[in-house]
Design a binder for these strands. Structure first.
Lengths: 219, 219
DNA sequence: ATCGCAATTTTGTCTAACAAGTACACATGC
DNA sequence: GCATGTGTACTTGTTAGACAAAATTGCGAT
């Protein structure tokens, strides 16, 4: 069946709210009252409620019973856990890819784009970087693994919305490590690839956590 | 804070429906109309709707737009994908555990219970078996990894509700393979542990898929 | 200044209703 | 006979308004 753009009202609101969260329009900690959301999109409160509940389930918003939903504010511990989790999935992914020496086309393309954006703003690197890692996971052709990783991607993007324009890593270094990773996969060196990946993610995770720790005390 | 049993009405309905699905009371393919659910629990339709939507998101129910929700019927391809996905997570988990030679206490206990239930009905093995594998993942102490695995566990239990009393694997063999796995972790042999795990899951996955394929043609 | 209480705000759930989409049975035309 | 079109019944999607329950906030008393 051809993919149509039709979605329910709730889905449309979810989509828009996600964008506004990722773009930083809705900063971490922002309150999202049901009535406000309903008013903003000119829908009934239950509709807005359903959208908010979905985003809470996704982890983009947080809310306790009878309290208003807020854009999730990630702690340094959160970012470390997010990166540990993605490391677990991606490590096994690169091992499996290395066992068949399968270098995903989409990963090569994404890394080429990162290299091309050498002099661009750090925020522009986020998208191709996420795509690169997603390509590794998607290459396994496991719907569930991809879905799970997609959920993680949401939180990764939420991390990025916290740091915004801060330069945490040089794009040259990112591209170089990605390249090395793909070479090791092509060479069939699963352990080596897993190790490079672990270092790559550990490094990013540490920088991010440090940055957030500095930010947290200020707020 | 102490854990209280208080939950919202929606949560309570979700919990009960989950149990009824796992127990086989609601067989795969069963229709769950919003009004019926609402009537059954004596709640308003929107409340029932919220519960159903949650279960659809979880993957326990499936539903297209404007169609009534049904208990998900898993195909052989589904079970293979579920087992591939859990293999990815668990493989990396046992590697990490082996690197520190950390044998989770809870895993030992669960496997002891499986051994004790040598002559019990196959359906009774499901619970300690799931617990064993969960213990390996939980030992990583990564909240997100555990949450993700918990989602997978739901689908694994759904698989089990499909086969019900069928004896697919001998409990002796399961216990033996689990024991071997823990020994390799204790010995610090990550690659070996990952390999044993892969075979363990591959075998179970194949049996399950075959069983479901046989079942599917009949229905 | 701290604690407790009350008012306000916000969410949780319900009832009732209409709109919109799907599925199935039926009739029609080739 | 078979494919196509139509219509009806059923189910879900969304809305409106309302009340109850819980949490936050601010005020007042000690």
């Amino acid at each position: 069946m051809a993919r149509l753009g039709v979605v329910s009202v709730v889905q449309a609101i979810i989509r828009d709210l996600r964008e506004r969260i990722f773009s930083g329009d809705l900063a971490p900690g922002s309150a999202l009252r049901e009535v406000d959301v309903a008013e903003h999109y000119e829908v009934a409160r239950p509709t807005a409620k359903a959208a908010l509940e979905n985003l809470v389930a996704t982890g983009l918003l947080s809310r306790n019973a009878h309290q208003t939903a807020r854009v999730r504010r990630l702690t340094p511990a959160d970012t470390r856990d997010i990166y540990r989790t993605r490391a677990i999935i991606e490590a096994e992914a690169v091992r499996l890819l290395a066992s068949t020496r399968h270098v995903p086309e989409a990963a090569l393309e994404s890394n080429a784009r990162i290299t091309a954006l050498r002099d661009a703003s750090p925020i522009q690197i986020v998208d191709p970087d996420v795509r690169f890692h997603t390509a590794l996971v998607d290459a396994l052709q496991s719907p569930r693994t991809s879905t799970i990783y997609e959920q993680l991607t949401d939180e990764i993007r939420l991390c990025m919305s916290h740091v915004q324009d801060a330069t945490l890593l040089s794009t040259e270094r990112i591209a170089a490590e990605h390249g090395q990773l793909l070479e090791l996969i092509a060479a069939g060196d699963g352990d080596g690839a897993a190790e490079v990946l672990q270092r790559h993610l550990d490094n990013a995770s540490t920088r991010l956590a440090e940055h957030l720790a500095g930010l947290g005390s200020a707020v």
